[in-house]
């Protein structure tokens, strides 16, 4: 499906990397990774711990800069853009380790995210309370992430799974076109987890999603494309059925993993 024109739609990748590489001293955490992310699809990156998935995420979001290689977002080179610049260009991200504003309420978390899309915040006099657009956008994101009933709770008092949902609400409130989700289901209960899976399936229509996730049921039910990483390199990339049957993947990673076949 890559690069082809399907149904007359432009199938140029929204996010693409070429030869992305990152060294930490003598260790090559990400080695010559080229991936493409299409609008309206979910591209999952899987691999054992230490495969370089999180480093890849950090390179894409700008938290780390690559040692070599290029990143393009909607055709523009963003390799040297800072995280705020990438965010404003439509790249939203959630973190593996919950990275939110713990002393603030769910609503305030989402509102800060929404505020970033409402022009400059060098505005000193009008109370945020009266900024209808920002507040509405925050509330929509909270409802979408399934936290409607938790809006006024201080995030520090929420369960781990709910804090993960706050991550997603914040990413959504920035109205991104590309979503980088780093293990969004980690630590969630079955119910919360299936709600998020349904949410991601809905979000797929209008977003390009790069998903790093260990829950193989979720990955195989959601992903249009899978990339398997081992030791910083791409082992195999393709549709789920192809990955499932790949001998290389079986040998290197999925062989002993019973979850894979569930």
């Amino acid at each position: 499906m890559k690069g082809a024109t399907i149904l007359g739609k432009d199938r140029a990748p929204v996010l693409a990397t070429q030869g992305l590489t990152r060294h930490f001293g003598g260790l090559t955490a990400v080695n010559d990774v080229s991936i493409e992310l299409m609008m309206g699809t979910i591209h999952a990156v899987i691999g054992p711990n230490g495969a370089g998935k999180s480093t890849l995420m950090n390179l894409l979001s700008g938290d780390l800069f690559p040692s070599a290689g290029h990143i393009h977002l909607e055709g523009d080179a963003i390799t040297h853009c800072t995280p705020p610049q990438r965010s404003l260009r439509g790249l939203g991200r959630s973190y593996q380790k919950t990275n939110v504003f713990l002393p603030l309420t769910v609503f305030e978390n989402a509102r800060l995210a929404a505020q970033s899309r409402a022009g400059s915040s060098l505005r000193f006099f009008r109370p945020v309370l009266h900024e209808a657009t920002i507040n509405e956008r925050a509330q929509l994101a909270i409802d979408a992430a399934g936290l409607g009933a938790r809006s006024d709770r201080v995030v520090a008092t929420l369960s781990h799974g709910e804090q993960r949902q706050v991550e997603i609400a914040m990413a959504l409130a920035t109205a991104p076109r590309v979503l980088l989700l780093d293990e969004p289901l980690a630590g969630m209960g079955a119910e919360e987890s299936s709600a998020i899976v349904q949410l991601l399936a809905r979000l797929r229509e209008s977003h390009a999603i790069l998903l790093v996730e260990h829950d193989m049921d979720a990955v195989f039910s959601l992903a249009d494309t899978l990339t398997v990483m081992v030791n910083g390199t791409v082992l195999e990339s393709g549709p789920p059925a192809f990955i499932r049957s790949s001998a290389a993947v079986q040998a290197a990673y999925l062989g002993g993993d019973e979850n894979m076949h569930a």
């Binding site: 938290d63 965010s87 603030l104 305030e108 970033s116 914040m170």
Partner: peptide
């Protein structure tokens, strides 16, 4: 509100744009 956000988690503020 941005100031409070910076105090609580500047890194996240940057990733929010």
């Amino acid at each position: 509100h941005v100031l409070v956000g910076i105090r609580v988690n500047e890194h996240r503020m940057r990733s929010l744009g």
